[in-house]
Simulated scan of single mutants.
Amino acid sequence: MSGIASSPADPFAPDFLIDPYPAYAALRALGPVFEIERYGVWAMAGYAEVEPALKDWKTFISGEGVGLHGMNPALPKPLTLQIDPPDHDKGRRVLGRTLSPGVARRLRETFQKEAEKKVSELIDKGTFDAVADLAEAFPMKVFPDAIGIRPDGREKLLAWSTFVFNSFGPENEILAASRKEGLAAQSWIMECCARDALQPDSLGMMIYQAADEGEITEHEATHLVRPFLTAGVDTTVNGIGNTLLALATHPDEYRKLHHRPELARNAFEEGLRYDSPVQTFFRTTSRDVEIGGGVIPAHRKVLLFMASANRDPARWDRPDRFDIERTATGHVGFGAGIHACVGQMIARLEGELIFSELARRVKTIELTAEPKRRLNNSLRGLESMPVRVTAA
């Protein structure tokens, strides 16, 4: 990799993951493309490089796996995230139809009622853990309900997605610590995604209808329900948690939201940009590609720092400032292009509803103890966030 800058940083080390943003600034300063010495991979951290690479699925392919080591044999065969067109199109088309505007309207009503119920419960408590009692509890109720899976054992969804996203990084202690629980959760999830385990008239059953119509096989339907289910949980849990933390630590911004609850959707969007739930993904080059004067050879792993792109001063004015009135459109917190998060519409709906309900009914949110980070090789989220709220 001669002729390009390199970095000794380990983007999967605990100290890096706890506070990655100063390190991202240093990586962006290395230039458009650089080497991560420890893993012998190419990398990009600026918005001008990361965003187009995410959209250029022909050059930066996903079919060789979106992790450091290619396809993980421990994970089920993918039908969306780690697969390229034309095979990718079939599954994506079915999922896209499942989330039609009509379905979204129906979900909004149900989710709204649950948001009202959840916020009432939290106001009554006064003090609570904003991760377990809100960021996890709300998405883990509404979306699995919509998919049609049974209510018991849903904590296994988080164990599974934690392991999956850890597996995209190196074989480190973070991955090792999540493996046993993650793999144990896998069989429960596959059972829940089987046709006879789903509730009638659910989103999960809509996917099986595509199998009845011969569009996909029964086996493919099961393997589409699973990533749909997990995609609607992990990014949402972390997105809500990270945005809540930003609001709790920026009381002026929360005050603004309290006075103007209509900013809720925008506040969540800014939260996704400011502290992205998905920090990094790998791609593999399908050909030699020239970037910023350097050439990345074909068949090489490239690490895309999405969260760094979302803090790039070349793209965002005062990017390290959390500003709920900012136009955050164009951030890559959910990826971009054909592999953008399949659950993002659901995540945005949940974020908008929970933050507008909080804005209307909660006057202040303050931390009562230091939040704890949950370290993950790809995701950025919280283990706990003790807070106190005062009713409006």
Results as ranks from 00 to 15, higher is better:
M1A: 14
G3H: 08
I4E: 03
P11I: 04
F16L: 03
L17A: 07
I36D: 02
V50T: 11
W57C: 04
E64Q: 15
G65L: 03
L68I: 00
H69T: 03
N72H: 06
L79E: 10
D84W: 09
H88D: 08
K90C: 13
L99A: 02
F111I: 11
E116W: 00
K117Y: 11
E121P: 06
D129T: 11
L134G: 10
V142R: 02
P151R: 05
D152M: 12
R154V: 05
S161I: 05
E173I: 00
S178Y: 01
R179H: 09
E181S: 15
E181N: 10
L183V: 11
S187R: 14
M205A: 12
Y208N: 11
E215C: 07
L224R: 10
F228Y: 15
L229P: 12
G232L: 13
T236H: 08
T243C: 10
D252F: 06
E253F: 05
E270Q: 13
P277M: 05
T280D: 11
F282S: 07
T285R: 00
T285H: 00
G294T: 12
F305H: 07
F305M: 10
D312Q: 06
D312L: 06
P313E: 11
P313F: 11
R321V: 15
I324T: 01
E325S: 12
H331S: 10
H339P: 07
G343T: 03
R348C: 01
K372W: 03
S378D: 04
G381P: 04
